[in-house]
Write a protein that binds this DNA or RNA. Sequence first.
DNA 1: TCCATGTATTTTGTATACATGATGAAAGTA
DNA 2: TACTTTCATCATGTATACAAAATACATGGA
Lengths: 217, 217
Amino acid sequence: MGSSIAITNRSLHDQVASRIRDLIIEGRLEPGSRIDEAHLIEELGVSRTPFREALRTLAAEGLVIVRPSKGSIVRKLTHKDVFSMLEVLRNLERLAGELSCERASDEEIAALVDLHNRMMDCYRLRDRMPYYKLNQEFHSRLAELSKNETLQEMQANIQARLKRIRYIGNEKPEFWAGAVADHEEMVLALKDRDAIRLGNAMAHHLKNTWDRVKDSI
Amino acid sequence: MGSSIAITNRSLHDQVASRIRDLIIEGRLEPGSRIDEAHLIEELGVSRTPFREALRTLAAEGLVIVRPSKGSIVRKLTHKDVFSMLEVLRNLERLAGELSCERASDEEIAALVDLHNRMMDCYRLRDRMPYYKLNQEFHSRLAELSKNETLQEMQANIQARLKRIRYIGNEKPEFWAGAVADHEEMVLALKDRDAIRLGNAMAHHLKNTWDRVKDSI
DNA sequence: TCCATGTATTTTGTATACATGATGAAAGTA
DNA sequence: TACTTTCATCATGTATACAAAATACATGGA
């Protein structure tokens, strides 16, 4: 998004929306709980207008639910919700993998492989937080390489909804090792530009994700 | 969305959002043109607050673009945008088809077949508008049968963005006949619960859609 | 004549005030 | 005691007023 020098002239409601997003992901706003408008606008130091506009944005994104005349609540994901999101995400990422093999430049692939290597460094050191962040970036970047903006947007949306759960997801060692193996396979397939193989690897990876997160919902 | 009896107690900004959506689809608000806030709130008879909240919702849905301090414009879809949307939609509908074969009840399939038959009646009479509406419903209903709410939501979102283009899409007779043939194939596959065949039929149908609409962008 | 700078006007962004509807407590009745 | 019913209070929804930014226009200088 941020192109070159341009000063961030972001409107207040955009900033508020980002802020609330973070609060939800960090768990400071608990899923299912009512969003105390009066309290939050005080804490954020803004008035109700931009705050409510931000809420409408988040509602359209699926992060909060506004109940007319009854206030808004942080959307609480059920098992079924998460399952369905992963089912769709799996499909989107398979598509992203296939398209990337066709459309990415050699440089772009090299850059992604480089990112992958840094991830592996983090894994060797069991450095969880940087790994987590690089992992997020890996998947976004792969979506970018598909050169399909709608795909990127949808993927980003589902990722955002799931972020909270993945954030708290108890990454057991054996799960982590499995994820790493998936990524190795993905990178190999991408290097070979083997669309089918990469697509399957992406899908396989997300199938495993369900096992990793289902107990933390 | 609308569950059971609940009286429409919809908030004003929701109504405004729906209204603007319609204005965009009907072409009364032209893609690329600035949205004249003062003029529209007068016409709709509401104040700026709910109007602006509605705009934020539509922005998150991808129908309008708000440029900070510079007003909002109706999003204008480029060829590339539409292509990428159809690419994703194709994938989503393939998934919807596959899942429906596994998860739909016999009654649900029968109801969809019935809807299909009504579509065919419209086709025989060359009754375009009812056909168009039934067609929309056919695809939504099939997404429902997948029992995957995220899938439904994403599909509905892309459909909404494309609605305007499909609305004006110059349906040449040969295109129409092709679409009808696709639908026949889809229904046969669904009756047999042949997931792969239905998935392919859905994907094939949307591949053709690109040819049908690409000249009206 | 053309460009730059300053000013006026319009448009957008934010805050606040008012209206309306929901929630819950107290009082009254069965 | 349990169950209504009413009223008070508070939260949400909407309108308006004020502030800030952007655009359009005009004036002056090269």
